[in-house]
């Protein structure tokens, strides 16, 4: 059952991801991204990371993507036009992608001997996320605050209509 669900969620995610970039209509792209986040949440549930799964749906699929859709609709972005691709770009891109996948296949088919056993027991709920966040990882957490401040200032500056 576990395996079936894992493969279902993973393949569904890949399909959604492909549809996000292959779609010409930005609204459809965004909706496929929402779907992708829901399947990702499914994977988290399989890992018994229930809290992260819930956050994934609430924050990403809920809040952020709704905001995204609002922006797309307010700006009234039309479906992007069909572009001509340069042959070199297409061939090069496919070659790099194939090389990367090939590399991944080699790596992941070898026996994956972990260098170390153990590590923190990953299970479940709120406590396992929050405790490390505010104890071990406090400094990166605080730095993220500065990062968000910078992002906020940047967005306001670059999108202001009037320069003055």
């Amino acid at each position: 059952m576990y395996d079936i669900l894992f493969w279902f969620f993973s393949i569904a995610m890949l399909v959604c991801g492909l549809l996000v970039i292959a779609n010409r209509n930005p609204v459809a792209s965004a909706l496929f991204l929402v779907l992708l986040f829901v399947f990702l949440a499914g994977l988290f549930v399989l890992l018994e990371a229930f809290f992260i799964a819930a956050i994934q749906v609430l924050v990403y699929a809920g809040a952020i993507m709704v905001l995204f859709l609002f922006v797309i609709m307010l700006l009234d972005i039309k479906a992007s036009e069909r572009r001509k691709f340069r042959a070199l770009g297409v061939v090069g891109g496919i070659a790099v992608a194939v090389a990367f996948v090939w590399e991944l296949v080699i790596i992941l088919t070898r026996p994956l001997k972990p260098l170390a056993t153990g590590g923190d027991e990953l299970s479940g709920g709120l406590e396992q996320v929050v405790k490390p966040l505010f104890a071990n990882y406090m400094l990166p957490f605080e730095v993220t605050a500065l990062l968000l401040l910078v992002a906020m200032i940047g967005v306001v500056l670059l999108s202001k209509r009037e320069l003055k």
Partner: peptide
């Protein structure tokens, strides 16, 4: 590595804004 990633992003994201100032 966690602090590495966060501080690297702090630098890089600020540069995105600064470069297009």
């Amino acid at each position: 590595f966690i602090l590495l990633f966060v501080s690297l992003e702090l630098v890089t994201i600020t540069f995105y804004v600064l470069a297009s100032y």
